[in-house]
Design a binder for these strands. Structure first.
Length: 259
DNA sequence: ATGTCGAATAGGATTCGA
């Protein structure tokens, strides 16, 4: 089973590039971030015609996540637990009913800039809520994958120019500490496990010729539960997508799990 | 002091978020 994450930065803007990548890469499941659409505005029919079921958790203008799956989905949940007042659409999860089921948690972790400030406080609170959800899922001992745009540069080697990120919410010590806490619960960073850095990136800014200069960062991650990591066969980054027509600033990242 | 893009609002240029 091939599972992917892709921050598309707007479904309307990516209505050609996304189906083109799906046709070429043929993932079984894709978690999308920044669909920037309400549920009713998402063009489900485009993806249903390609054999995908579509579940969205959208909001107007910003954020928004979705799951596309060639397999049936069960136990679909929208929103990260832990704060009923949080109205931002950043979390969707479901169990993929393949030959061997796996739960996917698709996430768009808050950017957090500027830091310090209320947006950074929200980021750290969100990460703490995610830790609670992951602890609960680990206790169930079911295989699961938390995949998405984490907006976290885990280590120095995950940025081409780490020095420019030292005061950024994506790289501040408290951000990296919260991310390490997640990993240290027992999750496996699939790209780190299969493609150790440096020079392995998933995002290149639109500005200042970042792509042409390979000034990238690695912020899109797939974290595998122990039972999912046992099934890890392959992990990759579809870097060439960044050089295509009207690209997102992120590229797809994927894993292949046994069965 | 961002070599930019996407969406919303408004009906073009500006603002926000990233």
């Amino acid at each position: 089973m091939k599972l992917a994450t892709f921050n598309i930065n707007g479904i309307k803007a990516r209505i050609e590039a996304l189906p083109a990548w799906l046709a070429a890469a043929a993932p079984d499941v894709v978690c999308l971030q920044e669909i920037k659409s309400v549920d009713d505005g998402f063009p489900c029919e485009v993806f249903e015609a390609m054999g995908y079921r579509v579940e969205t958790h959208g909001q107007k203008g910003f954020n928004g996540v979705a799951i596309l799956s060639k397999f049936a989905l069960s136990d679909i949940r929208r929103g990260l637990p832990g704060d009923d007042s949080d109205e931002q659409a950043r979390w969707i999860e479901a169990v993929v009913e393949g030959t061997r089921p796996v739960r996917v948690c698709g996430l768009y972790l808050p950017n957090g800039n500027p830091a310090p400030g209320p947006k950074y406080d929200y980021k750290l609170q969100w990460m703490a809520r995610m830790e609670v959800r992951v602890r609960d899922l680990l206790a169930s001992e079911e295989p699961f994958v938390c995949l998405g745009d984490y907006n976290v540069i885990p280590q120095t080697e995950d940025a081409a120019r780490p020095n420019v990120w030292v005061t950024d919410a994506l790289f501040l010590p408290a951000t990296r500490e919260a991310y390490r806490r997640l990993l240290n619960l027992g999750l496996t960073d699939a790209i780190r496990a299969r493609q150790p850095g440096p020079g392995v990136y998933t995002f290149w800014d639109y500005q200042a010729g970042a792509w042409e200069r390979n000034n990238g960062i690695r912020i899109d991650h797939l974290l595998l539960s122990p039972q999912a990591a046992d099934r890890l066969e392959e992990a990759g980054i579809d870097k060439a997508v960044r050089g295509g027509d009207r690209p997102s600033d992120h590229v797809p990242v994927w894993v292949r799990l046994a069965s």
